[in-house]
Each structure stands twice: as C-alpha cells, then as structure tokens.
C-alpha cells in the first residue's frame, strides 16, 4: 500500500500530465468536455510544451541563482566576519517578504524593462528572501555544543561548516529553497505580462479573449508543475537530518 502512495500514484500523475502537455488531441478532448462551446481549445501561436519549457527556464534560473546566492549570503552573515550584517539582512528579508510577489514584478519593470532577463531579476530578488532567512535560522539553530565538539575533534572552520553545520541545517535550508521555488512557479506566470513568455502567456491570452479553456490550460499546467516540484523537494527533505527527531 505504501508503494502505491509514494511511487505508483505520482508516476501515473506525471504520465497523465505529460500526455496533457504534449498531445494536443488529448488536451482538446479534455478541454472540450470541461468547457463546451468554445471557439478554440488549443493556443495556436506557441506549443504548450514550449511555454512550459520557458516557464521551467524562468523558475530554474531565478531560483537556482536565489538558492546559490541566498545560501552563500546566509553562511556569510553567520560567520565571524559577516556577523555585523546579520541583523540588517534578517530585517530586510523579513520586511521584503511582506510585499506581494506581483508588486515586486510590477516595480521591476520600470526599473529594468521588459523581457526574459528583467523577469529573472525580479523573480530572483523576491525568491532569495526565504532562502536567506532559512539558511540563517538553520545555521543559528545548530547547537553550539556540537560546534564546540567539532572544534574539539580537530575540525578546521571549513570542515565544521561542511561536516557539521550545513548537514544539521540542511533540512531548514532546503525548506527555504522549496518555498522559493513554489512561489516562483506562481509568480513567473505574471512574467508573461512583461513579455517573459512561460505559462502566463496562455493565461493572459485566455483572459483577453475571454477563453476559459486557455486560462485553465496555463493555470493547471503551472499548478501541476508547482505541486510536482514541492513533492520532489519534500522527498529530498525527508532524507535530511531532522532536529525534531532527537
């Protein structure tokens, strides 16, 4: 029974999703049954697979950058040299998180302009915050006695970071990356408004032409993508050390 929940069911869902994205015939059949009497069911300018890959690129590049830069910054402010920046970074990141993601994107356009690159920048700026936040709190929550013990065993600073601190904080850090990714999948749909492509394109087009089949196509694909990522990272997280299990 356990395998059905953890392996078979997800595999079936992924297969259904792939068919929905790549086979226009199947997709039209599905949409026609849900939304009868529409003029068109298939967005004809770009294929859904292409929009999805643009979306993956938007999310992948922005969140990848956010993860690398965010974790690095988080490590920096918890080292002796970066300690002074610790409160500033925490304040900024907690205030900035109160902005809605759409507002961040809207503010980015006049500053950076339209297209793929500015969308990446906007998504990066917004999604780096949970990463920094979680990295800092993950590293801060490592028991000082364990760090002292690492020192006592003869670990160098770098070894303490890699062998003790990061493994102990990994679960919390990955949780931050997970949040950042899931937010980005949603936020990236808004990127279509500023010409970044992605699944938002078909949603916007559906809204303009009053075609709910289009809106559903984009929204469902983005939602499935978000769920899939969340599920995958959740699985990774479960393999990491959990402080609560002690």
């Amino acid at each position: 029974m356990k395998r059905i929940g953890s392996v078979v069911l997800p595999a079936l869902l992924v297969a259904a999703f792939a068919v929905f994205v790549w086979s226009e015939g199947v997709r039209e059949l599905v949409l026609r049954s849900m939304f009868p009497d529409r003029v068109s069911y298939i967005y004809e300018r770009v294929t859904l697979a292409r929009l999805l890959s643009q979306h993956v690129a938007l999310v992948g590049v922005s969140s990848g950058l956010a993860a690398v830069v965010g974790v690095t910054l988080g490590i920096f402010v918890t080292r002796p040299i970066g300690r002074d920046f610790h409160p500033i970074v925490q304040d900024i990141s907690s205030v900035a998180q109160t902005f809605p993601p759409v507002a961040v994107l809207a503010l980015a356009v006049p500053a950076i302009g339209f297209g793929f690159a500015p969308s990446i920048v906007a998504l990066f700026v917004y999604s780096i915050l949970p990463v920094i936040n979680n990295t800092v709190s993950g590293l801060d929550s490592v028991d000082p006695a364990v760090i002292e013990s690492s020192r006592g065993m003869g670990m160098k600073r770098r070894q303490i970071l890699w062998l003790t601190e990061l493994p102990l904080a990994a679960r919390v850090i990955v949780a931050g990356i997970r949040t950042s990714l899931v937010i980005n999948v949603g936020t990236a749909t808004v990127g279509a408004v500023v010409g970044a492509g992605g699944l938002g394109t078909v949603i916007v087009s559906g809204l303009v032409r009053d075609n709910s089949a289009y809106v559903f196509t984009g929204a469902a694909t983005a939602a499935f993508f978000a769920f899939g990522l969340d599920f995958l990272i959740g699985r990774i997280q479960n393999r990491l050390y959990d402080a609560r299990s002690d």
Binding site: D143, A145, V146, E148, S149, M153, G154, K156, T164, A243
Partner: peptide, 20 residues
C-alpha cells in the same frame, strides 16, 4: 591547533555526539 586536537582525545560535557 587542529593537528594538536586530533592527537588528543576529548570527551565533552553533555556528550557532544554529532546527531546527524
């Protein structure tokens, strides 16, 4: 310091085992 510590056994108050 690190070389020195690797050559000296150290048993720490409150155990200090690595939980992970």
């Amino acid at each position: 310091p690190e070389e020195l510590r690797r050559g000296i056994g150290y048993v720490i108050q409150s155990v200090g085992l690595f939980p992970h």
